[in-house]
Design a binder for these strands. Structure first.
Lengths: 349, 349
DNA sequence: GAAATCACCTAAAAGGTTTTCGTAACGTAG
DNA sequence: CTACGTTACGAAAACCTTTTAGGTGATTTC
C-alpha cells in the first residue's frame, strides 16, 4: 500500500530518455519524436505515473485550487450554493478546499490564513443570509467572490438571489390567477431577504393598482409562525383570497391552519411559498406553488466568475440572480399532477 | 492586491541571517540564539510571511490535506457526516478537499486520480445509503476510511450507524411505555437500513415475548407512503397501539393520516420516527419521538480514525456507531414542552 | 567541402522550504 | 600552545516538475 510513488525521473529512466524529454512527451509539446513519445507514455502507464501537482504548483505559482469559505454549513442555503460551486469547479481541473467557519470571525481569519498558506488561486465566500457581510478582499492577495451574502464593499464581486424579483414573480402570478386581496407573511424584519421581498410585494401590488391586504406580518421562518399568522389573518380579514409567504415553512403552517379553519386551498385562498424546499413544497396538501431561488445556479455562476477573476477578468458589483416560479396545486386548481415550471430570464448578470 | 508574497529568503535577508537560520528560528528549533530568533520573527511579522505549504509538502511528503469523496451530496445524510468530518479536520491543521462524485463511478475514478495527484494524506469516502459500496482501498496508496456506507471489504475501515440498535432503542421505548401491539412501516426493502431496522424490531419484540403487529410494511421513504400505510394498517388491524416508522417522513405522514381517521397520538397510538430530521420531527403535531443516528459524530469519529490510520494506527473493521433516542410528544403524553434526550453508550467502537 | 538548417534530445535552473553537514569562534582541559 | 567540545550559524542538497538554453548528429545548401 505504501509503495513509493513513481516520479517523472522513474518514467524517464524506464523509457531511456532524459527527464526533460519525458516531461515534453507527457505534456504534448511538439519537439519530440512520435516514437519517443510513445515510449514515454508507455513507461508512464506502466508505472501508473501521476505528476505531482505540488511540484507543478510550486513552479507555476498556480495551484488550481480555490478555497470555499462558508460561514455556516449547517444551514439550508449554504449547501446548494456550495454544490453548484463544486459542480463548476469539478468541470474544470480545479479542486476546492472546504472550510466551515461556523459563523465565527476568529475561525474565519484562521481559515483564511491557512488557505493562503496553501496558495489557493482564489476564494469564494458563501454566507448564510442575504445580509451583507464584511469584505475580506483587501486582506487577501487573490481574487474573492461572495455568494448568497454580498460583501459590504460594492466594489467587490458578489452574487445574491433577486429576492425582490422573486416576490414580484409570486405576486404577479397571484394577480394573474385572479386574486385581488393578497397578504404577505414573512420572517424576521432583521433579514434583508424578508424586507426585500416585502418591498417587491408592495411595488408589484401598487403597479397593479391593488392595495396589500393588511400590513406585512414579520415573524419567524417557522411553520409555527405560519399557523399563528394564519389564525390572526383569517380572523381579522376574512376576505383575503391569497397569501404570499416568506418561505415554504411559513406556507406549510399557513396551509395547515387554513384547512383547520375550513378554508379550502387554493379555492378560497391561494398560497405561494418561497425557497422551493422540496421536502416541504412537494409534501404539503395541496402541493405548494413557490419561488425557487435557484441557489445551485447561483453557486455555479459565482464559481465561474471566480475563474474569470483569476484570469484577470473580474466583474465587480453585486449581481442579483434570477429566481424561478414553480407552480403547483396551491395556486392552480385542477392542473394535472405533474408540476409545470416557469423560468424567467433577465434581471441579473 | 497582487504583490509578490514574501518568502523565507526575504525574511532571512531582512533579518540579516541565512535562509537556514531563518527556517530554524521560525520552526522553534533550538540551535539558534534567542536574540537572533527574535530578529527573524520580527522580520517575518513585518513581511507578514506565510510559509508556502506546497514547498513544505513537496519536501516532507505530507500535505496535511485529506480528500473527502462523497457520492451524493444532495442527499440528506452525506451532509451531517461531512460536517462532522470537516469539524474534526479543522481542529487539527488538516484541510479537506471536497469532491462530489454524484453517484457516478467514472467521476469517482477521476476524482480519486486528481486527489492522488495532489498528494492527499488520506481519503474519507462518504456514501449515501448504508448499503456496502465497492472498496477503493487497494487502488490507492494512502489510508481510506468509509463513512455511512461501509466498504464491501471487511478488512477496510468503515463507520456505519447502528440501525439495528436504533430499532431496538425505539421498540424498547415503546414497550416501556406500555405498548404491546407494535407495527413497523419502513422504506424500500432494497435498503440495508430498512432491513437492519426491521430485524432489530423483530428481535427486540421476540425478546420481550411479543409478536409484531402484522408484517413489516416496506414502501418508500416518503410522507405519502406513511399516509398510505397508515390507512392500510388502521383498517386491517384496529387494535394497534404503536408504530415504529423507518424515517421521520413516513412518521409525519402516519401521524397526519391517523389524526384524519380520528386516532389520537399518542393516546391511541404512539409513533416513533427515525433520523431526527428536526425540520420534520419538531414540526409534527404532536412533536415526534425519533431515533437520532448522530451522523455528525459518525463523521467526526471517521475523521479521527483517518488521522490514526495516517499515523499508521489503522483500526480495520466495520464499526457501528451508537444512536440516540430523542423522546418527544408522540410517545410520551403530558411531558413538559422541552424534549429530554436519552443517550446510549456501547455497541460500537 | 564547408556552412547552414533541422530534428531531437539533454543539462541545468527555477520555485520555497527543511535538513544535514560543515565551519567558524570561543572556551576549557591538558 | 595544542586538542577538543560547544555553540551558532551558513552552504548545499533534497523534494519534483517545467522551461530555457544549448548541444549533437544528420541532412541540406551553396
Amino acid at each position: 500500500m505504501t509503495t513509493r510513488r513513481a516520479t517523472i525521473t522513474d518514467v524517464a529512466a524506464l523509457a531511456g530518455v532524459s527527464v526533460a524529454t519525458a516531461s515534453k512527451a507527457l505534456n504534448g509539446r511538439d519537439d519530440v519524436r512520435a516514437t519517443t513519445r510513445q515510449l514515454v507514455l508507455d513507461a508512464a502507464a506502466q508505472l501508473s505515473f501521476q505528476p505531482n501537482l505540488l511540484a507543478q504548483g510550486l513552479l507555476s505559482g498556480q495551484t488550481r485550487t480555490v478555497g470555499l469559505l462558508t460561514s455556516d454549513m449547517v444551514g439550508r442555503f449554504g449547501i446548494p450554493v456550495l454544490l453548484g460551486a463544486e459542480n463548476a469547479f469539478g468541470a474544470g481541473e480545479m479542486a476546492v478546499l472546504l472550510c466551515d467557519a461556523r459563523g465565527d470571525a476568529i475561525r474565519e481569519q484562521h481559515y483564511i490564513r491557512t488557505l493562503l498558506s496553501r496558495r489557493v488561486d482564489g476564494l469564494i465566500v458563501v454566507g448564510e443570509s442575504t445580509n451583507p457581510r464584511p469584505s475580506i478582499t483587501k486582506d487577501v492577495p487573490v481574487p474573492v467572490v461572495y455568494a448568497y451574502a454580498p460583501s459590504d464593499d460594492p466594489a467587490d464581486v458578489s452574487f445574491v438571489p433577486d429576492d425582490e424579483g422573486g416576490a414580484r414573480l409570486a405576486v404577479r402570478h397571484l394577480i394573474a390567477t385572479g386574486r385581488t386581496r393578497i397578504a404577505h407573511i414573512t420572517g424576521p424584519v432583521t433579514y434583508k431577504a424578508a424586507t426585500d421581498r416585502a418591498e417587491g410585494v408592495q411595488e408589484t401590488l401598487e403597479e397593479a393598482g391593488l392595495a396589500q391586504a393588511g400590513e406585512t406580518l414579520y415573524g419567524a421562518w417557522s411553520q409555527r409562525w405560519g399557523r399563528l399568522a394564519a389564525d390572526m389573518l383569517l380572523l381579522n380579514d376574512p376576505a383575503i383570497d391569497a397569501v404570499f409567504c416568506g418561505n415554504d415553512q411559513i406556507a406549510a403552517g399557513f396551509i395547515e391552519a387554513a384547512r383547520e379553519r375550513g378554508r379550502r386551498v387554493p379555492d378560497d385562498i391561494a398560497v405561494v411559498g418561497y425557497d422551493n424546499w422540496e421536502v416541504l413544497s412537494e409534501e404539503t396538501r395541496p402541493t405548494l406553488t413557490t419561488i425557487d431561488p435557484d441557489l445551485e445556479r447561483l453557486g455555479h455562476t459565482a464559481a465561474q466568475h471566480l475563474f474569470a477573476a483569476i484570469d484577470g477578468r473580474a466583474t465587480p458589483g453585486v449581481h442579483s440572480m434570477p429566481t424561478r416560479l414553480v407552480i403547483r396545486d396551491s395556486t392552480a386548481p385542477g392542473i394535472p399532477d405533474t408540476p409545470w415550471q416557469v423560468s424567467r430570464g433577465g434581471s441579473g448578470a
